[in-house]
Design a protein around this nucleic acid. Structure first.
Length: 1036
RNA sequence: GCCGCCGUGGUGGAAUGGCAGACACGCUGGACUCAAAAUCCAGUGAGGGAAACCUCAUGUCGGUUCGACUCCGACCGGCGGCACCA
C-alpha cells in the first residue's frame, strides 16, 4: 500500500535541503553565464529530436536573467493569501527559466520603513526597529514556508544602515545634480493632535486618530525635480513590455499638453505707471479670436496688482473664501464655477480687443501659467462660466473650429454621418479635429440635432440655442491672418493647420510661443517622521550664511523675485503693525536672514537684510528717491501713484500711514546647505516618537543630534531633521540585489552589467504610477550620473506583469476591518504549500481580480493526492521488479508544448487544468516511469516539494530543481485523427472524424453521408466553407 | 464628468472568428462501510421529446460575416484610476 501524502514532512524536508545546498544561490557575476549551470544528469530523459527551445526570457548576457517580485512591506498582520499570488507566478517563471539553462537572479527583501511600525512604537512604546525586526522574522518564516526559489544570501532590508547608506548617497547625487530643492508645501495638519499627517492617515477629510477635521499647513519641504524628466519618462514608455493599461495610467499622470503661451497686455485704468503683462497657456491657439475674457487663478501674483479700487473689496473677500475652502470643498462639492471681475482689461494680441480679466477658482495656479484665455464657444468650462456671468460667447472659424474631446475619431463620424459640410459659400470643407477637451453638448447636438436630418452638419452652436456671437472668421494663414471670410481659405483647411499657423503667427509677431505643459508635479520628498532614512544634509551657521531666523516669511511677486535671483540688490517694504505680532516686521534687523517665498509656485529663497530704514509714512518714503528706484526698476512715481501702488489690500495704505513702513535693502544669499558625506547617517534613538507639535520630525527634538559641526568649516551647524518617504528605499532596491553586500558602491559595474535591467517584474497594479514612476526617475538619474553603466540602459524594468487582486470570500477587498482576510499559514497547515501555490494559480487569469474560495481548494489537493498515489505505487511496483507502464509519446509531447507555452504566456490557470487533464488520462499502473518523469519536471515549478519528493521516489539522486526542462517534438504532436464540425447554415449538425489534413472532397462526402446532415441538404448547397481539420459549413 | 478594465451554468472559470460551458467546486445518484468520513464510478445550462434529435442560451439592442462569447456601434451594470490640468 502506498503511504499517505504527508505534505508537512515533505515540504519541510525539501525546503531545508534547498537552503542547505544553496540550490538557488547565484554569484554576482556567474563564471560561465552562457552554460547551463546544472545539466540534466539523466540524458535518457530528454525526449528525442527536440527543437531547441527558443521561447522564454530574452537570451542576453549569455543567459543571465533577473526575475523580480515587488518586495513587501512587512506589516504586523503577516502575509495574506494575496501576497503569494505574484510570488508564485514569478517563482514558476524563475524555476522554468532555470531549468532552461538560464542563470536566474530571484531575490527577496523588505521595504521596512513606514508609518505602521512608527505608530506601533507610539502606541506600545516599542522601538520601531524592534517592531520591524519581529515583522520581518514572521514574514520571512511565512514566505519560506511556501517554497519559493529565492536566493536568501541576497536578502536586503531598507532599514539596514548598510542599505540606506546608499539611499542617502543617491539623494546626495540628486542634490549635486540640482534635482532637489526646498519649497513651502502644504501638508495635512491635525489641529487637535498638533501633528502632520500622511495622506493615508486622513480619512474623509478627518484625522484618522481623533476625527478632527484636518487642515493644510505650509511647511518647508525637500522636493525632487521629477518634472525635469517628464519627457523622458513619457517617451521611454514606448519600448517597455508593460500592460498597456499601466502605460496609459503613467501617460495620463504625466499629462503632456502641447500648445502656446500667449502674452496679453493688461490695461489698468489710470492706476499704474507701467502696463502689466500676463502670459496664458492654451492648447488651442487657433481659437484666439474667440477669447472673450481672461481668467487668473485667485492666487496669481498679478491679481493684487491689477485689481481696481472699485473691485478690491469683492476680489479680497473672494480670495479669502477660496483660500479657506479645503481641497475637498473646492473640488468635490463645488461643481458650480464662481469668480469675480478684477476691473482690469486685457488686450487680445491679435485684434487689440479689450476683454475683461476675472479671477476664478476653476483656474489653478499650479498648472501652466496660472492664467487662461477663456474661449467659451470652444471650451465647456469657459462656456459654463460665461453663461453664468453673462460674458460674451464668440465662435470662430466657421465650421473649422468646432472641436471635440481628445482622441475623438472623426473617421467614425465621417463614415456614419457623411461629415462633408457644404458651407453657405458653396465650398466643401473637410473638417478635421484637433481638440483637447470635452464639449459634450456639442457632440450630442451633432448626433441628434436636426442638422443631420437635413443631410448636413451645420452651425452646431446655433443648434444649442446659446446666445452666440458669430466670429469675425479670422484665420491664420501662412503666418498672417485675414479678417475677411474667403471661401478659398477655408477649402481644405483643418483645425490642425489653423493651430500650427496660429503658433507661427504668434512667434513671428513676438506675441507668444510654442509651449508644452505637464500635469506631473515635482515630488515632495521629505516627511516629518522618525522611521525613515535621515536626509544627510547640514545647514551651516557660520561658513556660509545663517538661516535660523525663519520666523519671518515674506511673500514675493515674480518681478522683484527675478531681480533678486539675478543678484540685484532691491528694496522690500512692509507696513508695520504693532497690534498684530505676526504683522510687525520691525524686529527684522540688519544682518538677519529671512525667508522669501514666491507667490504661486512657493519657491524658497534666502535673503539677507543689508540696511533697514524705518519710515513714518508714504510722504517720507516718497522723498527717498534712492530707495524707490530699487523698489522697482526706474520707479519714480508721484505721491498719488505711490499710494495706488500700496493699495494692495483695502487697509494697507491706512496701516502704513498709521504705523509706518519698514524698508529693507536686501540681497539674495545662498543658504549653507552642506552634504553630510559620512554615510550612513544613522537614525538616532529617540525617547518619544510623537510628532513635536510644530510639524517638525521627532528628530528635531534631539538637540545633541541636531547640532553638529559643519563638515566644511567646523562651525556650528544644524542637521536637516526631515526624513525620506517610504518610496525612497524601493526606488533602487532592484539594483542592490545584484550586489547586496558591496560597501564601495550601490553595486559593482560588473554585477549591474550582468543582471540589469530587470527582465521580469511582477507586482500589483496599485503601484502603476507612484512606485513605478519614481523608480524609473531614479534609474534615469543614476544612469545619467554614471552610477549605472550605459550597457544597462536607462529603463529599470523591461517587462512588467500585474497580478489581479485576490478578494475575500465575500467578493470584497480583503481587509482586517471586514474580517475577510485569509491567512496562508492556515492553508499551508491543512493542505500544504504546493496546494496553496497551485490553487492560487488555478483560481483564474493571473491579471484578473478573483475571490478566494476556501472550499475550492480541495480540488487541487485531490489532484496532488492522486499524483502522489500514482507515482508512489509505480515506484513500489518497479521496486518489486514488476514491468514499467507505457509512455504515450503523443500525449507527453502535446502536454509539454501546452505547459511550456502556458508559462510563457502567463496562463497558469490553464496550466493547472492541463495537469489535471493529463492525469485524468492515466489508468493506474499503466503509466511509465519516463512519462511520470516528464510530468514531474513540468509540475515542479508549480508544486516543487511534492515533485522533488516523487522524483526521488522514482530513484533519482539529483535535485529536480536543477534538472532540464523537457523539450517537445512538434511532429509527435500531430493527431492521428481530427474531429471536424459539420454545419449547415452555421448550425452544428454533426461531427465526423477524419485523418488530419484531409482535403475538402473527402470531408465533404463524409459529411454528406451523415444522416443528420443529409436531412438539411435537400437542394444542392450554394456554397461550401471548408476549414482544414476544423469545420465544414454548407450554405443552402 | 473623463480615462481604463470587465460582464459566460448554482460558483471559480475554459474557448479570442469555426463543436459554448474544458478543468475544478458544489449538487444528485450509485459502489465501498454496521455507519460516517475519505475514496471510486455516473450524471449535472434551460426547455421539449420514449428516443434519434430539436429549440433557446455568453448583460441589452443593433451591425459585419457562410458562421460572433470573440470584431464594430449604441446602451445598461460592475470594478479600478484621475478630479476643473486650459
Amino acid at each position: 500500500m502506498p503511504d499517505k501524502y504527508d505534505h508537512q514532512t515533505i515540504e519541510k524536508k525539501w525546503q531545508q535541503r534547498w537552503l542547505k545546498d544553496k540550490v538557488f544561490s547565484v554569484p554576482n557575476v556567474p563564471d560561465h553565464p552562457g552554460a547551463p549551470r546544472h545539466p540534466s544528469s539523466d540524458p535518457s530523459l530528454s525526449l528525442r529530436d527536440s527543437d531547441p527551445l527558443t521561447r522564454g526570457g530574452r537570451l542576453r548576457r549569455g543567459g543571465s536573467t533577473y526575475v523580480l517580485d515587488m518586495f513587501p512591506y512587512p506589516s504586523g498582520d503577516g502575509l495574506h493569501v494575496g501576497h503569494p499570488e505574484g510570488y508564485t507566478a514569478s517563482d514558476i517563471v524563475a524555476r522554468y527559466l532555470r531549468m532552461n539553462g538560464k542563470t536566474v537572479l530571484h531575490p527577496m527583501g523588505w521595504d521596512a520603513f513606514g508609518l505602521p511600525a512608527e505608530n506601533a512604537a507610539i502606541q506600545k512604546g516599542i522601538h520601531p526597529r524592534i517592531v520591524t525586526e519581529q515583522n520581518v522574522k514572521n514574514f520571512k518564516r511565512q514566505i519560506q514556508s511556501i517554497g519559493f526559489s529565492y536566493d536568501w544570501d541576497r536578502e536586503i532590508n531598507t532599514t539596514d544602515p548598510k542599505y540606506y547608506k546608499w539611499t542617502q548617497w543617491i539623494f546626495l547625487q540628486l542634490i549635486k545634480k540640482g534635482l532637489a530643492y526646498e519649497k513651502e508645501s502644504p501638508i495635512w495638519w491635525c489641529p487637535k493632535d498638533k501633528t502632520g499627517l500622511a495622506n493615508e492617515e486622513v480619512v474623509g477629510g478627518c484625522c484618522e486618530r481623533c476625527g478632527t477635521k484636518v487642515k493644510r499647513k505650509m511647511l518647508r519641504q525637500w522636493v525632487l525635480k521629477i518634472t525635469a524628466y517628464a519627457e523622458r519618462l513619457l517617451s521611454g514608455l514606448v519600448n517597455l513590455d508593460w500592460p498597456e493599461s499601466i502605460k496609459t495610467l503613467q501617460r495620463n499622470w504625466i499629462g503632456k499638453s502641447e500648445g502656446a503661451e500667449v502674452r496679453f497686455k493688461i490695461k489698468v485704468e489710470g492706476f499704474r505707471v507701467k502696463d502689466e503683462e500676463v502670459s496664458v497657456f492654451t492648447t488651442r491657439p487657433d481659437t484666439l479670436f474667440g477669447a472673450t475674457y481672461l481668467v487668473l487663478a485667485p492666487e496669481h501674483p498679478l491679481v493684487d496688482v491689477i485689481t481696481t479700487k472699485e473691485q478690491k473689496k469683492k476680489v479680497e473677500s473672494y480670495k479669502i473664501k477660496v483660500s479657506s475652502k479645503s481641497d475637498l470643498e473646492r473640488t468635490a462639492l463645488e461643481k458650480e464655477k464662481t469668480g469675480v471681475f478684477t476691473g482690469a482689461y486685457a488686450v487680445n494680441p491679435v485684434d487689440n480687443e479689450k476683454i475683461p480679466v476675472w479671477i476664478a477658482d476653476y483656474v489653478l495656479m499650479s498648472y501652466g501659467t496660472g492664467a487662461i484665455m477663456a474661449v467659451p464657444a470652444h471650451d465647456f468650462r469657459d462656456y459654463c462660466f460665461a453663461n453664468k456671468y453673462k460674458l460674451k460667447i464668440r465662435y470662430v472659424n466657421d465650421g473649422v473650429g468646432l472641436l471635440f474631446r481628445k482622441d475623438f475619431d472623426v473617421r467614425k463620424i465621417m463614415s456614419k454621418f457623411e461629415i462633408e459640410y457644404k458651407s453657405k459659400y458653396g465650398t466643401e470643407i473637410q473638417i478635421t479635429f484637433h481638440g483637447s477637451f470635452g464639449v459634450n453638448y456639442v457632440i450630442d447636438n451633432y448626433i441628434t440635432g436636426n442638422e443631420y436630418e437635413n443631410g448636413r452638419i451645420g452651425h452646431l452652436l446655433e443648434t444649442t440655442k446659446l446666445p452666440v456671437e458669430r466670429g469675425p472668421y479670422l484665420l491664420f494663414l501662412e503666418g498672417k491672418y485675414d479678417r475677411v471670410i474667403n471661401s478659398e481659405f477655408l477649402n481644405g483647411l483643418s483645425v490642425a493647420d489653423a493651430w500650427r499657423q496660429a503658433i507661427v503667427w504668434l512667434e513671428n509677431n513676438k506675441k507668444g510661443k510654442y509651449a508644452i505643459n505637464y500635469k506631473l508635479r515635482d515630488w515632495v520628498f521629505s516627511r516629518q517622521r522618525y522611521w525613515g532614512e535621515p536626509i544627510p544634509l547640514v545647514k551651516c551657521g557660520s561658513c556660509k550664511i545663517k538661516v535660523e531666523s525663519t520666523k519671518w516669511v515674506l511673500n514675493f511677486y515674480e518681478e522683484p523675485w527675478r531681480a533678486l535671483q539675478n543678484g540685484e540688490k532691491t528694496v522690500e517694504t512692509r507696513a508695520l503693525n504693532p497690534d498684530e505680532p505676526d504683522r510687525y516686521f520691525g524686529d527684522v534687523k540688519e544682518g538677519d536672514v529671512i525667508k522669501g517665498v514666491l507667490k504661486g509656485t512657493n519657491e524658497v529663497m534666502y535673503l539677507r537684510v543689508m540696511k533697514r530704514h524705518m519710515l513714518k509714512n508714504l510722504e517720507e518714503f516718497h522723498e527717498r528717491k534712492d530707495l524707490l528706484g530699487k523698489l522697482r526698476r526706474n520707479f519714480s512715481p508721484t505721491l498719488g501713484e505711490l499710494k495706488k501702488f500700496y493699495a494692495l489690500t483695502l487697509d494697507y495704505v491706512e496701516r502704513i500711514q498709521k504705523n509706518g513702513l519698514v524698508a529693507w535693502e536686501i540681497e539674495h544669499v545662498i543658504p549653507g546647505i552642506v552634504p553630510w558625506e559620512h554615510l550612513p547617517l544613522e537614525l538616532p534613538d529617540v525617547k518619544k516618537y510623537e510628532p513635536t507639535g510644530t510639524g517638525e520630525s521627532p528628530l528635531a527634538g534631539i538637540k545633541e543630534w541636531v547640532n553638529v559641526k559643519c563638515p566644511e568649516c567646523g562651525g556650528p551647524a544644524k542637521r536637516e531633521t526631515n526624513t525620506m518617504p517610504q518610496w525612497a528605499g524601493s526606488c533602487w532596491y532592484y539594483i542592490r540585489f545584484t550586489d547586496p553586500h558591496n560597501e564601495k558602491a550601490i553595486a559593482s559595474d560588473e554585477a549591474m552589467k550582468t543582471w540589469l535591467p530587470v527582465d521580469l517584474y511582477v507586482g500589483g497594479a496599485e503601484h502603476a504610477v507612484l512606485h513605478l514612476l519614481y523608480a524609473r526617475f531614479w534609474h534615469m538619474v543614476l544612469y545619467d550620473v554614471g552610477a549605472i553603466p550605459k550597457e544597462c540602459g536607462d529603463e529599470p524594468f523591461v517587462k512588467l506583469k500585474n497580478q489581479g487582486l485576490i478578494l475575500g470570500p465575500d467578493g470584497e477587498k480583503m481587509s482586517k476591518s471586514r474580517g475577510n482576510v485569509v491567512n496562508p499559514d492556515d492553508i499551508i497547515a491543512k493542505y500544504g504549500a504546493d496546494t496553496l501555490r497551485m490553487y492560487e494559480m488555478f483560481m483564474g487569469p493571473f491579471e484578473d481580480a478573483k475571490p478566494w474560495d476556501t472550499n475550492g481548494i480541495v480540488g487541487v489537493r485531490r489532484f496532488l493526492d492522486r499524483v502522489y498515489k500514482l507515482v508512489s505505487s509505480l515506484a513500489q511496483q518497479l521496486a518489486s521488479g514488476e514491468v514499467d507502464g507505457d509512455t504515450d509519446e503523443h500525449r507527453v509531447h502535446r502536454y509539454t508544448k501546452l505547459l511550456s507555452e502556458g508559462i510563457d504566456n502567463f496562463r497558469f490557470n490553464t496550466c493547472v487544468s492541463d495537469f489535471m487533464k493529463w492525469m485524468n488520462e492515466w489508468s493506474v499502473g499503466a503509466v511509465s516511469k519516463e512519462e511520470l518523469g516528464v510530468f514531474l519536471r513540468l509540475l515542479s515549478p508549480f508544486a516543487p516539494h511534492i515533485a522533488e519528493e516523487l522524483w526521488s521516489r522514482l530513484g533519482h539522486k539529483t535535485f529536480l530543481a536543477q534538472e532540464s526542462w523537457p523539450k517537445y517534438d512538434p511532429k509527435l504532436i500531430i493527431e492521428t485523427n481530427v474531429t471536424v464540425a459539420v454545419q449547415v447554415m452555421g448550425k452544428l449538425r454533426a461531427t465526423i472524424t477524419v485523418p488530419p489534413g484531409s482535403d475538402q472532397d473527402t470531408v465533404e462526402s463524409a459529411a454528406k453521408a451523415e444522416l443528420n446532415v443529409a436531412k438539411y441538404l435537400a437542394s444542392k448547397p450554394k456554397k461550401v466553407i471548408f476549414v482544414r481539420d476544423k469545420l465544414i459549413n454548407f450554405v443552402v
